[in-house]
Design a protein around this nucleic acid. Structure first.
Lengths: 269, 269
DNA sequence: TGAATAGTGTCTATAAGACAATATCCC
DNA sequence: GGGATATTGTCTTATAGACACTATTCA
């Protein structure tokens, strides 16, 4: 064995990686590790949880799966799973989304890492939360191999970017009890969305390929939880250079049809 | 044993928590765990790394510690450490800051979680990165029990919020080689700072208790990496309600002294 | 033709940038 | 007084909000 310090690591680690040394190495860390008993202090587990966000019926919507086991059996959870040893965090989140919702090539971004020791009553589980955005068609097509995923409407009890947990209800309006700290994760996702909307073209992720200016405005209003000035919104969007008119128009709308626009690739997302 | 599934968990875990069950429970997760060999797939380790940011000599500055062990011996690293089993992530970051820099009651916020499988050559280490802000006096007083921490000047090779790794140099201008992905962590910290500056009073964290408008403007300019319009900056700050004049003035400045202001508590940070 | 929304043009209020004029300190 | 920066005031320009008016589709 090249390095005697390996013996201080977890048995698991030392069996598999006899040559590895302390990951962060300075004196105080070594002191800590010298007195560190891996059987007394097992490693935390690491999971990813994904808040899949869409807009249905003019409401912010997410995708929850009913828990079939204790604890919190019967409550609703975001799709999640363990991070595998040789898999990046992004890849783990994409895998969860693919496995549990059948979705690939989705806008997916890391949100925040939740690690309160008591957040899961069984053991220490640190979860890296992600959020994903899909338009209503892809959202409705999302399915789960594992149970009865449902569309959950998000009710945000705070304004602006104050932040905090949110409430969710099913499509009949009945409240859904969220498992663990998933109400906080969803709240963080809404806060992030509101913050990013001002300076990134994130709203397009929630719309079909072509859309009208009013549809885009409704997306923004739904995310922000407040009405926007129509004239100003229109001017800003057209001036942004992010939209390109298709020349085509809506049809069968019972009034003058609006022009359909498309998102122009190239601007940062 | 109440639950037979516990036998599938890691040996470490099952010794300590014989009754715990699968953390995220649905069919596909159970399928995964049923074929999951804990000795073949050891848990990732979890650390925190803290980018301690200040402004010295009109430059963005951070605090790095020289590595005394392989790998990357001799390169420079952000202070970091393992997350203990019963310690929150925030508490771990505060502990690192206290232990390695002697700083308490510091502005400290979670930044991003870095978890590429190859980011540490020894084993899988997922790190939850934090950033902390202190004014120059506290920064200069920061010390480490473990080695030779130094002031490192940050050179940001991109504009706006483009993001990406940054370079660092010592106070003589000589480049410092950063360990692992710490250049990415610092880059993320700068990007976050630039983004937050527009709508949060984050600049006050980098200044002494009282300060002039020009000093505040210089902080903003240093963070943003570009010059700001003096008149407009002054008007915006005074109109924000975040500043309160103290009636006192600078002295010994060789020109007309400016009024000293104080940050008004109460606005969100 | 009427209902309903799309799209255009104009006016006003507000904020930012530019710049000039004055104030106040130290030397 | 001279040098230097603070502070105030004014003008111009860009953008947001408000509102009136015209355009186009379907029923």
């Amino acid at each position: 064995m090249k390095n005697p310090k390996a013996a201080r690591l977890t048995k698991q680690g030392s069996r598999r990686f006899p040559d590895r040394v302390d990951p962060i190495v300075d004196q105080s860390e070594r002191d800590f590790l010298a007195t560190y008993d891996p059987s007394a202090f097992p490693h935390p587990s690491v999971t990813v949880d994904v808040a899949l966000i869409s807009i249905t019926h003019q409401k912010l919507t997410t995708f929850v799966v009913r828990r079939t086991e204790y604890p919190q059996r019967g409550s609703w959870a975001l799709p999640g799973g363990f991070v595998r040893f040789s898999e990046s965090l992004d890849a783990a989140a994409a895998r969860v989304l693919s496995t549990k919702a059948g979705l690939r090539n989705v806008f997916l971004e890391q949100l925040y890492t939740f690690g309160e020791p008591g957040r899961d009553p069984r053991t220490r589980i640190i979860t890296v939360a992600y959020y994903a955005l899909v338009n209503v068609d892809r959202f409705m097509a999302a399915d789960s191999e594992s149970g009865r995923p449902i569309e959950a409407w998000i009710d945000v009890p705070w304004e602006g970017e104050a932040g905090g947990p949110v409430d969710v209800a099913d499509t009949s309006g009945a409240p859904l009890e969220l498992a663990f700290d998933h109400a906080d994760i969803l709240g963080m996702a809404v806060k992030r969305l509101r913050g990013k909307l001002d300076y990134t073209p994130i709203g397009f992720q929630l719309l079909p390929d072509t859309f009208t200016l009013r549809q885009l405005q409704e997306v923004h209003e739904t995310i922000l939880g407040r009405r926007l000035n129509k004239d100003s919104f229109r001017r800003r969007m057209l001036a942004s250079g992010l939209l390109k008119g298709t020349g085509k128009r809506q049809d069968e709308v019972g009034h003058r049809p609006a022009e359909l626009f498309r998102f122009v690739k190239g601007a940062a997302v």
